[in-house]
């Protein structure tokens, strides 16, 4: 995946860039919000923005809000916007200032995928990015069109009063529904164990 690391502290920016490269990601970096926006404007293929919260020119929350204004129109349609992950050394309930804690709350509400607390455990960072990769790799299943086609087929079978084809069709539908029921009950039992 292509990840953009945004941090105005060179040392920590370099650290996170190297860490993400170790995980096999294609990594870009920006030393502040303004530079990050320029990169996001010209490169619509960025999958994830890993940004620090507190930066001098623009905080991570403002960066996210400004990124929403970027046009993502491509020849083939709309480009998927990048997922935003926030990095912060703030600790809710710690010695951090109330207005900073408020920024954390806003970040969670307005659409940041996750908040990671510095120093970030590498395994947690890896798992968070893997989750994004999994979510972005999922194909959207078009059930609406499928149901519409089934409805049309059923209408035809009723109109033609074709008993044999109707029975075959119902049998194959029942078989597929049973498979789906088995699979969903397995998923539910795994989720319940968690």
């Amino acid at each position: 995946m292509k990840v953009l690391v945004v941090d105005d502290v060179g040392y920590t920016r370099h650290f996170h860039v190297r860490l993400l490269q170790k995980f096999g990601h294609d990594v870009l970096s920006a030393e502040g919000g303004a530079q990050a926006l320029k990169i996001l404007e010209r490169d619509l293929s960025v999958d994830i923005v890993l940004t620090d919260l507190m930066m001098r020119d623009m905080d991570g929350v403002e960066l996210y809000k400004n990124s929403l204004r970027i046009s993502r129109v491509l020849d083939g349609g709309q480009a998927t916007p990048p997922a935003f992950i926030l990095m912060t050394a703030l600790r809710p309930g710690g010695t951090s200032q109330q207005k900073d804690i408020e920024k954390l709350r806003i970040a969670k509400e307005i659409g940041f995928l996750d908040v990671l607390y510095k120093p970030i455990e590498p395994e947690l960072l890896k798992a968070t990015l893997d989750n994004v990769k999994f979510a972005r790799g999922k194909q959207v299943v078009d059930t609406v069109s499928t149901v519409r086609r089934i409805e049309e087929t059923v209408n035809q079978l009723i109109a033609q009063q074709d008993l044999d084809t109707s029975n075959t069709f119902m049998e194959s539908l029942r078989g597929q529904l049973e498979r789906l029921e088995d699979a969903t009950s397995k998923i539910e039992s795994v989720a319940a164990k968690r």
Partner: peptide, 29 residues
């Protein structure tokens, strides 16, 4: 102080980190 705290956090969570954090709090207040 915030920048320094972030930089040294990979290497230490003891005295230098705590002092940078104290300075950051002081400045922010």
């Amino acid at each position: 102080a915030h920048a320094l705290k972030g930089s040294i956090s990979t290497m230490t969570s003891s005295v230098p980190y705590e002092l940078a954090r104290d300075l950051e709090s002081l400045g922010k207040s």
